[in-house]
């Protein structure tokens, strides 16, 4: 989902760059106070971790391609929203400067989508759910739902940026297709995030940001409102195509689909994207169904994994901790 240069128009580049710069500075400012504690060190190492974790490939079950974790929500859950965003920004900067993955001028837009929206926005969805549900199940459910939405919202932001660059008229359809494909991609992200957090919860639940100090205090209303906004946006995205019947014909659909599935060969797609390819030209019901199925699946999977991890945790003796020596080899915490 790294946007190259020369795809977005200059006003969009400038606007997203300004938002990104503001968001990034705000994030750094919030972290400056904590410069002396571990956070800066952890951010550097977490950035390296996210980079390395993106190298782990997950085979798609139907397609001969593979996807990988994006990690925005995972970083936010572990480090907090702003540190998570800065970590993602750091990763994006390195990917852009060293691998030409994502444009230099589009760095702002990429940071808005994959840093601010994924980490800060994702955290705003995660936190109320975690507090509302409580305990380990809350962490799992919140993180998985947030991971799903983060992918969805990031893709919608990309759609809006594209549309802002020249085709406002097509916005509803673009949104619809984006939502459809990324609902499936987001399932992959949610599954990986959930599976990773399940392992973390089983061994070092104390590492999760905010769980220790804040406990399960009731959510603040601002965050609830933000989460609500995110959900509403996503729902709107699913419903949008219904409002505008498709009239461009199959050629347009083919182009869009090619664009959407070809855009990121390295990302997770899923059975639903494949299904819709087989010839349901009418996008609206499919998108809505995908959204519905996606939401239900993520909630169900989150609930299931959350319950399962509670069981695991109670069975598992907490591993001896303390400053551990850096032994290598097969890791001790089997997942």
């Amino acid at each position: 989902m790294h946007i190259p240069d020369h795809v977005l128009s200059q006003p969009v580049l400038i606007a997203s760059g300004a938002i990104a710069l503001g968001g990034f500075s705000l994030g750094l400012k919030r972290l400056e106070r904590r410069l002396r504690d571990r956070t800066v060190v952890l951010m550097g190492i977490m950035a390296a971790f996210v980079f390395a974790a993106q190298m782990v490939n997950f085979p798609l079950l139907v397609l001969p391609a593979s996807g990988h974790l994006i990690g925005g929500v995972l970083a936010a859950v572990m480090l907090g929203p702003w540190a998570g965003a800065v970590v993602m920004g750091t990763v994006l900067l390195v990917q852009c400067l060293l691998f030409a993955d994502g444009g230099i001028l589009a760095l702002g837009a990429n940071f808005v989508n994959l840093g601010l929206i994924a980490s800060v926005g994702g955290y705003a969805i995660y936190d109320p759910i975690r507090r509302g549900v409580g305990g380990r199940a809350g962490v799992m459910l919140g993180a998985m739902v947030a991971a799903w939405f983060s992918v969805l919202l990031a893709s919608l932001a990309f759609a809006i940026e594209l549309a802002g660059s020249g085709w406002w008229e097509q916005l509803p359809e673009v949104l619809g297709w984006m939502a459809l494909v990324h609902a499936a991609i987001g399932l992959g992200e949610a599954m990986i995030t959930g599976l990773v957090l399940r392992s973390v919860l089983a061994v070092r639940p104390d590492l999760i940001f905010g769980v220790v100090e804040q406990g399960d205090a009731p959510p603040r209303w601002g965050r609830v409102a933000l989460a609500g906004l995110g959900v509403a946006l996503a729902v709107a995205a699913f419903l949008a195509p219904m409002a505008s019947p498709l009239d461009d014909g199959l050629e347009f659909v083919g182009g869009r689909l090619g664009f959407l599935s070809g855009e990121e060969p390295a990302m997770i797609s899923g059975p639903m994207a494949d299904y819709s390819l087989k010839g349901l030209p009418d996008i609206a019901p499919v998108t809505a169904a995908a959204g519905l199925i996606g939401t239900v699946t993520v909630f169900a999977a989150g609930w299931f994994l959350g319950r399962a991890s509670t069981g695991i945790a109670s069975r598992l003796e907490r591993s001896p901790e303390g400053p551990r020596s850096g032994g290598e080899g097969p890791e001790p915490h089997a997942a």
Binding site: R38, A53, V56, L74, M191, L195, S199, L207, G326, E331
Partner: peptide, 18 residues
């Protein structure tokens, strides 16, 4: 794969502490 990522993350955190 998720287990691999989780293990790497735990180790990264512990590495960060050290």
């Amino acid at each position: 794969g998720a287990g691999l990522i989780a293990a790497l993350m735990l180790r990264s955190f512990e590495r960060g502490e050290r």
